[in-house]
């Protein structure tokens, strides 16, 4: 009796889209930026990415297989994506064992212990990254110089690092500007920094791909970058000597990477567009505050983690405008 008719409630058709497809599409969207970082930082970049991906996948598999005794779900691609995003957020010179530690924290602590994919309150890759940043501040802020730039030094600071350092020493912005990469260089990625954050253009290309494949919607990236632009613009307008221009801020550092790939992490971002607006604006404001007034030169990972914490609250209180809602 193998040919029994199937009965199920409607609907009887499905889009055919799946969690795996979503994860692999995001990975595809990250590949151009990865390729560029290999071009810029050499095979070191590839090494970091490979170690991060492999250790994230391994940690998830081992935990599920031997500790939780569940059916491992590594094939859904989410662990690989976490690994890749983790690699994008660290300098290419990072030793391999730090990446393994970060993978254990990201997957073990931030994801599997909460119940695996879909149940983690915080973005695992960012938890791993922030853990490293706090535990190994020197290794995490020693940036190899890009091969493509004509700089002799083996290491160089990130544009945001240079900016913060310079302003801290009391220099005016106009004195610093010549040392900072131009907007065009920021867009194309001729600058020091983490693996994946250097080329804004290629990240935007990935964004375009994700939009076309309908993996994410435009809302969160636009809200985040828009808020950074507007808020920084206001500061710049008030005091151009103290604050850098807004375009510089959205092109540099992790702004693009964070807004397009980290803040849009489905699990940890709000469900409704109104909620996403609140979430994006929150990230933008916190980022600008940390960058301009905080101790760290870059703040988007902290901003995203902080807003991740607000996501359940936002989901509870910010609802979509219902059809036929009574006023």
């Amino acid at each position: 009796m193998s040919n029994l008719l199937t009965i199920s409630p409607s609907p009887h058709v499905h889009t055919g889209d799946s969690v795996n497809k979503i994860m692999y599409r995001v990975i595809i969207a990250l590949l151009p930026a990865l390729a560029w970082s290999v071009a810029v930082f050499g095979l070191d970049a590839l090494r970091v990415a490979a170690v991060a991906v492999a250790s994230c996948v391994a940690v998830e598999y081992l935990l599920q297989r031997f500790i939780l005794r569940q059916h491992p779900t590594v094939s859904d691609g989410s662990a690989a994506l976490t690994g890749l995003l983790l690699a994008f957020n660290v300098p290419s010179s990072l030793p391999w064992w730090m990446l393994v530690i970060a993978a254990v924290i990201a997957i073990g602590v931030a994801k599997v212990s909460f119940g695996g994919l879909g149940n983690n309150p915080f973005n695992p890759a960012l938890v791993g990254r922030v853990f490293l940043l706090i535990s190994f501040p020197v290794a995490m802020t020693t940036w190899p110089s890009p091969h493509t730039a004509d700089i002799d030094a083996a290491t160089s600071a990130t544009p945001l690092g240079l900016l913060k350092e310079g302003l801290h020493r009391g220099k005016a912005l106009s004195e610093l500007m010549p040392d900072l990469p131009s907007h065009l260089n920021l867009l194309t990625g001729q600058t020091g920094g983490s693996l994946g954050e250097i080329s804004a253009a290629l990240l935007l290309l990935g964004f375009a791909y994700l939009l076309i494949r309908k993996v994410i919607t435009w809302h969160i990236p636009v809200f985040v970058l828009g808020t950074i632009f507007i808020f920084q613009g206001i500061l710049w307008e008030c005091n151009p000597v103290r604050f850098a221009d807004p375009l510089f801020h959205i092109l540099t550092g992790g702004a693009m990477l964070g807004a397009i790939f980290m803040a849009t992490d489905m699990v940890t971002s709000p469900m409704s567009h109104r909620g996403q607006l609140l979430f994006g604006v929150g990230i933008g404001i916190i980022t600008v505050l940390i960058r301009n007034f905080g101790a760290y030169p870059e703040g988007i990972s902290f901003a995203i983690l902080i807003m991740n914490g607000f996501t359940p609250l936002i989901n509870t209180y910010v609802k979509p405008k219902r059809f036929g809602e009574k006023k």
């Binding site: 009796m1 008719l5 199937t6 009965i7 199920s8 409630p9």
Partner: peptide
Amino acid sequence: RPRTNRYDGAASCAIEAALYGGD
């Protein structure tokens, strides 16, 4: 009690019973 069809909805008696007489 041999099966006469195959139920493929959510694994809940309440849902299956609301849908039809059963498999």
